[in-house]
């Protein structure tokens, strides 16, 4: 166990965990930020997606000792849940079970931060890494497209 200093959603945090603890479990177990989801643990599904310096990363295989940049989770994406991507998700009524959606939203938000008006192909390529077992892919695509018009 060792002390690690992190900046999460703009707030400095200290956690006392094993160095190999994935950021996912630090967020969920140590910091109580359960919006970031566990689903595969091998960076294959995207449910655990967070931002490191505004870039989408899979937190389930990222050891806390390797986290050197500010972390943003779904809880910190916007002050009032009104990021254009979050609003588009409601407007298009994307969620079915909802479990993968935090990861989908974080993936989409990072894409639009880097490229506010991506092509349909760029959206599909980026979102292809996130699994939605309910199969809400059409609406995910539509919501990212809608959000891109409001960036």
């Amino acid at each position: 166990m060792a002390i690690f200093k992190l900046t999460v959603n703009g707030k400095e945090q200290q956690v006392d965990v094993d160095a190999d603890t994935p950021l996912l479990w630090v967020l969920r177990d140590s910091l109580g930020l359960t919006g970031t989801k566990y689903a595969c643990g091998i960076a294959q599904c995207g449910a655990c997606t967070v931002h490191l310096n505004d870039v989408a990363v899979r937190s389930c295989m990222l050891p806390v000792s390797a986290v050197k940049a500010p972390v943003t989770t779904i809880e910190g994406l916007s002050e009032n849940g009104d990021h254009p991507v979050q609003l588009a998700w409601d407007e298009v009524d994307v969620p079915q079970c909802g479990y993968c959606q935090a990861g989908q939203i974080m993936t989409a938000a990072a894409l639009l931060k880097k490229k506010p008006h991506p092509s349909a192909e760029e959206i599909a390529n980026t979102m292809h890494g996130n699994i939605c077992r309910c199969g809400a892919y059409h609406r995910i695509r539509e919501a990212v497209t809608l959000a891109s018009t409001k960036m």
Partner: peptide, 8 residues
């Protein structure tokens, strides 16, 4: 539940 889902 949209708001709760989209805000984690």
């Amino acid at each position: 539940e949209n708001k709760n889902i989209t805000t984690g």
